[in-house]
Design a protein around this nucleic acid. Structure first.
Length: 502
DNA sequence: AAAAAAT
């Protein structure tokens, strides 16, 4: 059996690894570290959870001990698809590089340029970036790529999914081709293979099996549900309450809007819950993730921004509120639990319209997923359908809602469909401030005298406001029988016509 | 039927 000490890493690195409590390298580490230290190119085929990050961080630290950085000329460059992943790699450099005095710069969007500029100016040994922000800095003349000795492209298949490949090609062209390139991808579709052929010179290919956890230690169940959101939310709540050993859970939705909606619903039902998606401001994203990792929040409602790569140890449950449209996403999502040999449980809500995607999942993972309480054919009819008393009940509910709204002092009069507020009375109450329930946007300007641009409520919040505004306006328009107001009447100033042509 | 990422 290999030991970290046998891989050729420096003493400084080894002592940090020992302090972190590791003695034995994972297969990807054992396979990639020695050739990386020989300055070979690496083609690493490995998923997250296999110790992939350390397989490039540790040799990079060792190689960086020789030489030092010059202003605006980073020595190494790591590209990551999401801001959270980039931040996570930076944490790894802090952990394993604690005996080094290296300058690490995290260049990601959504945060201010100032500190990033300062670090570039000082000379960065390691740049960890999302592609957009890196190119932004480059175009502003803040850095030269001609001194980069090592380029790491992480999660290449995901970069491809996200349309980053043109950016990656552009960045790679700016870096001397005498560089060493470490290229990682979870899968190797033809496009990625082509890209690897272009970027790598005589690479050492290191491939590790996908972590066994997916198949073996995670209990997977499908749960039949009707398609209406409020019915799905009720099924989910019952499911969560029925779990004996729920320590914490990630709940995935397909859309950002649904993340926001489900978060609000669970919050109003008194769950300890947070939300994470890409339209939230960066500070909230970071706070939310930290609170979840620290156990301050028990449930995290998330988009697929959280599906891959994020290292959240010890998630006991994964719930798919929506069946993922791409089957691979299912594998990534449930891979958030059952990590490091622990057991985990995953539940996927399936409605009649999802059967195609559920079938695709079973085909991809090569096994049937058991249904928890009977499959879709055994699903009882929803309470409301074919019910003579339905209209009356709906009207009563409407009355209740109006009362609640008035009580809460928010006299909104927009007409929503019955189903929109049928979830439960609890959802109609104003959100109570509860200790432990951390809300996404409200935390944003903790301790700040003023709101900077990054502290503004996330776009999701704005989108929700927009929705309300639209609804009100639509309502108003419907009942508007006066003359249509137009900005300038019939007279349109000449300058506007010119601008309009451009 | 989506999400992610520069502003």
């Amino acid at each position: 059996m290999t030991n970290f000490a046998d891989l050729g890493l420096s003493q400084k690195v080894l002592s940090a690894v020992t302090d972190a409590g590791y003695a034995t390298p994972t297969p990807i580490q054992a396979g990639a570290i020695p050739p990386a230290l020989q300055r070979r190119d690496i083609l690493g085929i490995a998923q997250t959870g296999t110790g992939k990050t350390a397989s490039f961080v540790l040799p990079m630290l060792t190689l960086l001990e020789k030489g030092r950085a010059r202003a605006r000329m980073p020595r190494t460059l790591i590209l990551e698809p999401t801001r959270e992943l980039a931040a996570q790699v930076a944490e790894n450099f802090d952990k394993y590089g604690k005996n080094h005095k290296l300058n690490i710069a995290l260049l990601i969007g959504g945060v201010s340029f100032d500190e990033q500029d300062r670090k570039l100016e000082r000379g960065a040994d390691v740049l960890i970036c999302t592609p957009g922000r890196l190119l932004d800095h480059f175009e502003r003349g803040k850095l030269l790529m001609s001194g980069v000795e090592i380029l790491v492209i992480d999660e290449a298949d995901r970069m491809l999914d996200m349309g980053f490949i043109p950016d990656i090609e552009r960045i790679a062209k700016l870096i001397p081709f005498t560089r060493q390139t470490l290229f990682f991808s979870a899968t190797m579709p033809p496009e990625i293979q082509k890209l690897a052929d272009r970027f790598l010179q005589n690479p050492e290919r290191v491939e590790v099996a996908r972590p066994a956890s997916t198949a073996n230690t995670v209990t997977q169940r499908f749960v039949a549900s009707h398609a209406k959101d409020y019915e799905k939310r009720a099924v989910l709540r019952d499911l969560i309450r029925a779990q004996d050993e729920l320590k914490n859970a990630i709940i995935f939705c397909n859309r950002k809007k649904d993340v926001a909606d489900l978060f609000r619903s669970l919050d109003r039902h008194g769950f300890s819950v947070g939300a994470l998606h890409g339209d939230m401001d960066q500070r909230s994203r970071m706070t939310m993730l930290a609170n979840f990792k620290d156990g301050n929040i028990k449930l995290l409602v998330a988009s697929d921004v959280a599906a891959r790569g994020l290292d959240i140890p010890d998630v006991s449950h994964v719930f798919n509120f929506d069946v993922p449209i791409h089957a691979e996403d299912y594998v990534h999502r449930i891979g958030r639990t059952g990590r490091a040999g622990r057991s985990g449980a995953s539940f996927t809500l399936v409605t009649r319209r999802d059967t195609k995607f559920a079938d695709a999942i079973e085909k991809l993972i090569g096994q049937k997923v058991e249904w928890l309480n009977g499959d879709l054919s055994e699903l009882p009819e929803p309470m409301e359908s074919h019910d003579a008393g339905r209209k009356d009940r709906g009207r009563d509910r409407h009355k209740d809602r109006k009362k609640d709204v008035e009580r809460s002092g928010k006299g909104r009069s927009d007409h929503r469909s019955d189903t929109a507020y049928a979830d439960s009375a609890a959802e109609l109450e104003p959100v109570a401030e509860r200790a432990g329930a951390v809300k996404p946007e409200r935390n944003a300007d903790n301790g700040r005298g003023h709101a900077s641009r990054n502290d503004r409520p996330g776009r999701a919040q704005n989108a929700a406001n927009d929705d309300n505004r639209d609804r009100r306006n639509r309502h108003r328009r419907d009942h508007d029988d006066g003359p249509t107001p137009v900005g300038f009447g019939d007279e349109i100033p000449a300058f506007m016509l010119i601008a309009g042509k451009a």
